[in-house]
């Protein structure tokens, strides 16, 4: 479980996030949604400590991140996996080397064991026979899978995904979403996902936190989302026409 407490963050005097509090649960896919530029990436990076937060705290299973020393932080990091918006694979390393990288750097396992683990993770994301290719030689969807494999290599307790399906076609996007949900349940991780894709919200949104201009506007489950009395949230959801039709349909049935 991750508790975010009154988190605020500014860059050069410009307030990006203001007093955000929420809770992300274990074994669940927790979604942060909001428009482009609303501060999702900054929030996710503040939660994991890539950005130093100005005020507030993030509590990982009872341990306050702010009060940790650098050794404790480094230890916590080994329990975190992160998938970045652009995959962030190391382009001068092969697929296998990318997945093996955290194992090479942070474990004392013999090479065989590291190889086996890397192959297990690659198989888990349904990738085969690509071990010796470079990131530039595989498709965007495959790059995301490799990045997921790398993120789960050390068997993390917490998984963070920044727009896991941006730049993918709708079908591949659903496959990636489902994969993340499966892994979350299988390894009982606390997963936090940034997205602006309503398909993901309806598909895998166990909990949804809606951010607008750096402020938490609304939170709840996907069942509540259509009945939320929040104008900004409605604007966001019904920007896509199909969801407006779904709602009208729902309201018709109710009557």
């Amino acid at each position: 479980m991750i508790e975010v407490k009154d988190l605020s963050k500014a860059f050069d005097g410009k307030q990006i996030l203001k007093d955000i509090s929420t809770v992300f649960h274990k074994g669940k896919t927790n979604l942060i949604i909001g428009q482009s530029g609303s501060g999702k990436t900054v929030l996710l990076k503040s939660i994991v400590g890539l950005h130093q937060i100005d005020e507030g705290d993030v509590v990982y299973d009872g341990e306050s991140f702010v009060s940790m020393n650098s050794n404790e932080k480094r230890k916590l990091r080994q329990d975190m996996g992160m998938l970045f918006q652009g995959s962030a694979l190391f382009d001068s390393s092969t697929v296998e080397e990318n997945v093996r990288f955290p194992l090479d750097m942070l474990t004392d396992w013999p090479l065989d064991e590291r190889r086996d683990r890397a192959n297990f993770c690659l198989e888990r994301v349904n990738l085969k026979n690509v071990n010796h290719l470079f990131p530039s030689e595989i498709s965007g969807g495959m790059q995301k899978r490799v990045a997921i494999a790398r993120a789960i290599a050390l068997n993390p307790k917490y998984l963070f995904c920044d727009e896991p399906n941006s730049g993918l076609d709708p079908k591949t996007a659903i496959v990636i979403d489902e994969l993340i949900k499966e892994l979350t349940q299988e390894f009982d991780m606390t997963t936090v996902i940034n997205t602006h894709d309503m398909n993901s919200v309806m598909g895998i949104g166990d909990k949804i936190v809606f951010i607008r201009n750096g402020i938490k506007e609304w939170e709840g489950s996907k069942e509540d989302i259509f009945n939320a009395q929040n104008e900004a949230l409605e604007d966001f959801i019904f920007a896509s026409g199909i969801f407006r039709e779904v709602r009208e349909y729902h309201q018709k049935i109710k009557k």
Binding site: K45, V48, L50, K73, R74, K75, R77, Q78, M80, G81, M82, F84, Q85, G86, A88, L89, F90, D91, F101, P102, M105, L106, R150
Partner: peptide, 13 residues
């Protein structure tokens, strides 16, 4: 800019 440095940092490297 491609977040590869963030990827290193998040591993605690």
């Amino acid at each position: 800019v491609t977040e590869q440095i963030d990827a290193l940092d998040i591993m605690g490297i």
